[in-house]
Design a binder for these strands. Structure first.
Length: 587
DNA sequence: GCGAGGGT
DNA sequence: ACCCTCGC
């Protein structure tokens, strides 16, 4: 008989998703076989805790559904070596744990559950967060898989009390493991304190105006109906506009338009391609417009009202702390980190986000955070000088690279310099830059050469980063957050090139993530200590969004600027732009 | 799973 | 570069 669980683990690692589905379902026998004591009532819990030394922590594993704003937890598995494993069924009141510190694995839902029940959450450690710092590139941080990686084996299918035993085992090794690689401070000062901050933000949620979105949806629908008719006329027949396959048939076979580029499965119909085709035919522009409106309607105008929580009347995103390999947060269900902003129509979505009635939004975003970090880590004088002098950085770059006076830079030169600045942070290739700038790869290469000629220390920094990464197997941020990139040693030039771009981007994007997380932790503390009614609602990578009563705005603005601009001391000043408004579009 | 497109 | 969601 095959060892199905090992096979499952192996195939999972190899991403054989289809094969995994053919593995017979694992038998739940193990769960039934364990007879753990169930602690019914406060006295039973007190007795169990009596066996735990007074100031010792307790390992927990929570059972339930973790969605904000009110996770539903049915039980906690508990473990301490002196008291053994037990199961604690949960009622409506948070359990009294005698002030003990808890050790959990992915505790944010549990913290949120505690908050939802009006309790003040206990102090805690989080083994999933620790495991994320040790290796942020895992696809998931399930207790079983993290245990398998760090301990050689895991609980498999087990009762919560037994799972808590594994949480305990993880915590027996994690502090030392974190310290060994210099991640203990990041854990203690940033990631762990951030957990309850995120829990509170998720619980607060944000108000949206469903009426406004529904009206906008109807408007979009009207426009889409008209566009669809025009598209069918131009195409000489009906087809599914949402199907890239059918669209490709219409464009490249029926209408004989020239295919521009290919995907793995056929001819590409992405926006770049359609824009090119639009020069020779009326249809592609209509397709672009249709796609834009359909995206706004389905992803935002129709979806967001559905996600309004019936009791809070607000939208509660989940901020995931364990997803992005660079250290950034991500947001899901819904993603509130990609609410449109660039186009007029898109901003109608943003305008539907509202503060508490009578309150105002305050949005604070870091100006050029990643370029400032690049200036700091590279020591590039021209960048340092430009930021210290408060200059327009893209204009300055343009002046240097085009060899003209700063005052003589024209808009097009500035735009090219701006794209190049981002390309450098992303570690982009001449080929990638050429696509973005509609240059030939040769022109783009010449441009990059001129950029690096004028920014020798940036070039040296990037080369140093890649070389160190190749030699050590990982790159790191200013605070020591690591990202392992074994592909830097690959013999495959494509794979290695991709790895090198990740290696140049990760320390910069990751340092920005570290910095914003520090600001969040300090802002949460400062708001509490300052007796503010204001709340921190969202983080969008380089921006924090707050809502506050009118009479707190001035104080909040001063506090936010002070906290965010002092989050890290770099060789360049940090600059924060702050706006307030009656909706998120104005703020 | 893929292509596409929204954000940083 | 990093994400998430949508429709097919």
């Amino acid at each position: 008989e095959p060892d199905w669980e090992r096979l499952r683990a192996l195939w999972k690692e190899l991403e054989f998703h289809t094969l995994i589905r053919q593995i017979p379902a694992s038998a739940p026998a193990a769960v039934a076989a364990e007879a753990l004591p169930t602690l019914e009532g406060p006295e039973a819990l007190e007795r169990w805790l009596g066996a735990v030394p007074a100031d010792a922590p307790v390992a927990v594993d929570w059972v339930g559904e973790g969605a904000p704003p009110e996770p539903t937890l049915s039980a906690l598995g508990l473990f301490h070596p002196a008291a053994g494993a037990a199961i604690l069924p949960l009622g409506s009141v948070p359990p009294e744990l005698g002030g003990r510190r808890l050790i959990g694995h992915d505790v944010k839902p549990m913290i949120e559950w505690w908050l939802a029940r009006g309790g003040s959450p206990p102090a805690f450690e989080d083994t999933a967060v620790g495991a994320y710092l040790l290796n942020p590139a895992r696809t998931n941080y399930k207790l079983d898989e993290v245990s398998a990686e760090l301990l050689g084996e895991g609980p498999g299918l087990a009762a919560p009390g037994t799972r808590a035993r594994w949480v305990w085992k993880l915590w027996e090794m994690l502090p030392r493991a974190l310290k060994e690689v210099g991640l203990d401070t990041l854990y203690e000062e940033v990631e762990r304190p951030l957990v309850p901050v995120l829990a509170a933000m998720e619980r607060h949620g944000i108000r949206v105006d469903p009426g406004g979105l529904e009206a906008f949806s109807k408007e979009l629908d009207g426009t889409l109906v008209g566009l669809t008719r025009q598209i069918y006329t131009l195409a000489g027949g009906e087809f599914n506009i949402g199907s890239p396959k059918q669209l490709a048939e219409v464009l490249f076979e029926k209408l004989k338009l020239p295919p521009v580029k290919k995907t793995k499965t056929g001819y590409s119909t992405d926006a770049d391609v359609l824009e090119q085709l639009a020069l020779g035919h009326e249809l592609p522009a209509k397709i672009i417009e249709h796609r834009t409106l359909a995206k706004l309607k389905s992803t935002y105008a129709d979806a967001l009202p559905e996600l309004i929580h019936p009791s809070t009347r607000r939208i509660h995103t989940s901020f995931n702390q364990l997803v992005a390999a660079t250290g950034r947060l991500s947001s899901s269900a819904p993603n509130l980190q990609n609410i449109p902003i660039r186009t007029e129509l898109g901003r109608r979505i943003r305008a539907a986000f509202l503060p508490e009635p009578g309150w105002r939004f305050l949005a604070a975003d870091y100006s050029q955070i990643e370029l400032r970090i690049l200036a700091h880590v590279s020591g590039e004088e021209s960048l340092l000088a430009a930021f210290r002098a408060g200059e327009d950085i893209h204009q300055r770059t343009a002046a240097e690279v085009f060899g003209v006076n700063v005052t003589a830079v024209v808009a097009e030169q500035r735009a090219i310099a701006k794209t190049t600045n981002f390309a450098v942070i992303y570690g982009v290739t001449a080929f990638g830059l050429s696509n973005q700038l509609s240059f030939t790869p040769k022109q783009a290469q010449e441009f990059l050469d001129r950029f690096f000629g004028r920014h020798a220390k940036v070039k040296a920094y990037l080369e140093r980063t890649v070389a160190e990464g190749r030699q050590r197997g990982f790159v790191q941020t200013l605070l020591g957050r690591r990202r392992y990139i074994p592909e830097l040693q690959s013999g495959n030039p494509n794979l290695r090139g991709f790895a090198e771009r990740m290696a140049t981007n990760a320390p910069i994007q990751g340092t920005a993530a570290d910095l914003v997380k520090i600001a969040m932790v300090r802002m949460a503390k400062a708001l509490a200590e300052g007796g503010f009614k204001a709340r921190m609602l969202l983080q969008v990578h380089d921006e924090l969004l707050f809502e506050a009563p009118e009479d707190e705005l001035a104080r909040l603005e001063a506090l936010t600027r002070e906290v965010m601009e002092s989050a890290m001391a770099l060789d360049v000043p940090l600059k924060v732009d702050i706006k307030t408004g009656a909706d998120w579009e104005q703020a």
